[in-house]
Amino acid sequence: MPTSASMTIDNAVPIISLRGVNKTYAGGFQALKNVDLDIKRGEIFALLGPNGAGKTTLIGIVCGIVNASSGTVIADGHDTVRDYRAARATIGLVPQELHTDAFESVWATIAFSRGLFGKPPNPAHLEKVLRDLSLWDKRGVKIMTLSGGMKRRVLIAKALAHEPSILFLDEPSAGVDVDLRHDMWRMVRELRENGTTIILTTHYIEEAEDMADRIGVINKGELIVVEDKDVLMRKLGKKQLTLTLRQPMTSIPVGLSAWSLALRDDGDTLVYSFDSQEEETGIAELLRALGEHGIEFKDLRSSESSLEDIFVSLVHRPKGAMV
């Protein structure tokens, strides 16, 4: 049993650590630019970024599918190139594309995965994985007869067959129905509770908002933000006050230029955006000023920006702008 002191030390050491990782593909395209990233032991880390940002490339480098052009990657204390055996044995990967062995049975393919990763047979574990993914009834069928969502489950089962302590999920929710998504996220939470570190990518930002402890945003090969989800939401989150006007307006009176206002819905609504971190929201003053200008409203609503809004603003932010 590790003592509590060593536990703290263990938790402080990142389970995955990338330093100065660059990737230039054979055609000359630079897919990753000097990426430094630490993944904490036991966390759920969501890697977000638009299509072609370099998410799959980054995962490929950690897992051994892509050779980095430069830089180092340490996984669970092992260099992924020099000590690839030990590093890879701890990692499970669910790839983005549905690559499966069409003619194999579900059972055969997951037994294969377990063996390939150097683990002795353990039918009880494989059974549990299949049951958790509602695949147990399908264990004898050929993979080619399964639907797309079922194949995705098979890939998850393959990745879990060797009991990895790090799990990469590259867009696990693509093409997956609501039920499976719920099952999958329940399973991910369970795995995390048992100490598995999970790194996932998704284009459904609300999933990341739901699941992740920390968020990394990658754009055009550059890691632009890595932050605790809560901190990120607080720091970059905007609040909005939406006023439904009695009389539509064509332009915002000059006297209100002190507030960041925008007209929507052909002048029917007025939107005031403000920083959620500020002490003074400016709402009281705004409402008073509106009264002075004789602008009346029939409804008033305030909302907070979602991670999605934050994500969009980050990705479209001019290069070099500070967070």
Binding site: R85, L93, P95, H99, T100, L116
Partner: peptide, 14 residues
């Protein structure tokens, strides 16, 4: 061809 090579490449095999 089928893309399943990803598993071989990510496995701890020499």
């Amino acid at each position: 061809w089928a893309g399943t090579i990803y598993e071989l490449l990510s496995a701890p095999v020499s």
